[in-house]
Structures are given as C-alpha cells and as structure tokens.
C-alpha cells in the first residue's frame, strides 16, 4: 500500500468533526463496551479498532463516534470493564474536553450477582448493586445482600 493512501486511510479513521473518542479500552472488552453503551443502535458513523499497542494496557481498543455525546451516568457504566478509559470530546475537529470514567455508586444491570442462590440468577430480574468499595471493586447485591468482589465479577 503506498504511503499516501495509508495516510489518507488513517485520516479517514481519525477525523471526527464532532463527537466522542473513547480511548484506552482493554481490547478484549471492546465488544462488551459496545453492547453496554448500546452502540448497535447508533445511526451516525462509528469506527472502532482493537489490538493497538498500549504501554499501559499492552493492547487497547478505541471507539470513535460521530455526533454522539455521553452523560456521565451513561459513560460511567463502562468503568467496570474499562477502568482506564479516557474520553476525548471533539468539536470542529478539536479536542475540547478530556474526561476519565468513574465507578458509579450504584451498578444497575451489567454485572451478575456471584451468588448462585440469589433470586436474580434464577429469574429474569435486573441486578442492582450498591458499590461499597471502588478499588478493589466490591458490589453489594440489593437482593441477596451478598458482596460480589472484583475477581468474581461476570458481565451479563
């Protein structure tokens, strides 16, 4: 591939007029992030890539969304599986704001309760946890009152 074409392609991927770039997603969680944010329903242009080299993560994924902006509540949902994710908010091709994701105080849906005898694992019920520790993550189930620790976390 000639260099000029490479450059053009790279530009095509990078260039967002207005929108959001989500960077530093662990590659293996790219599709979970897409699903948690419901990006399959977005009608504007989306580009994403995985397995980019990253000093921090070893391998990272990036998502670029045209004309999509997130509320904190919405984007913080991905903090459980993309702790180091960074957002660049783009207006008129310029990065006008950088944000990091934060673990919310409550986690609704997304995570399974680790307790097999919990009602939420036996009937169609949206899980609901109060976050009692953010690092390491400890989630207390509103229903069975048991604590799901970070190393037991399974994404629904």
């Amino acid at each position: 591939m000639p260099d000029s074409l490479k450059k053009k392609l790279k530009l095509k991927v990078s260039a967002i007029n207005n929108g959001t770039v989500i960077d530093h997603i662990p590659s293996e969680n790219l599709f979970k992030v897409i699903s948690i944010l419901g990006l399959q329903n977005v009608k504007t242009q989306i580009t994403f890539g995985a397995n980019f080299e990253s000093e921090k993560l070893g391998s990272k994924a990036i998502i670029k969304l045209s004309d999509v902006f997130f509320e904190d509540d919405e984007i913080n949902k991905i903090s459980l599986i993309a702790r180091n994710a960074k957002l660049n908010i783009i207006r008129d091709y310029e990065v006008v704001e950088k944000r990091v994701v934060e673990v919310p105080d409550k986690v609704i849906g997304i995570v399974k309760c680790f307790n097999p005898k919990c009602i939420t694992n036996n009937e169609e019920i949206t899980t609901y946890f109060n976050v009692i520790s953010k690092n390491p993550l400890d989630l207390k189930c509103k229903y069975c009152e048991k604590i799901t620790h970070e190393d037991q976390m399974v994404i629904k």
Binding site: I119, T120, E123, C141, Y143
Partner: peptide, 10 residues
C-alpha cells in the same frame, strides 16, 4: 418463605 436469597426483597 422462599429458598432463594433476595426473593422477598424482590
């Protein structure tokens, strides 16, 4: 009374 945990909260 129910054998599953969290059933009564639900």
């Amino acid at each position: 009374r129910h054998p599953l945990e969290g059933s009564s909260r639900y």
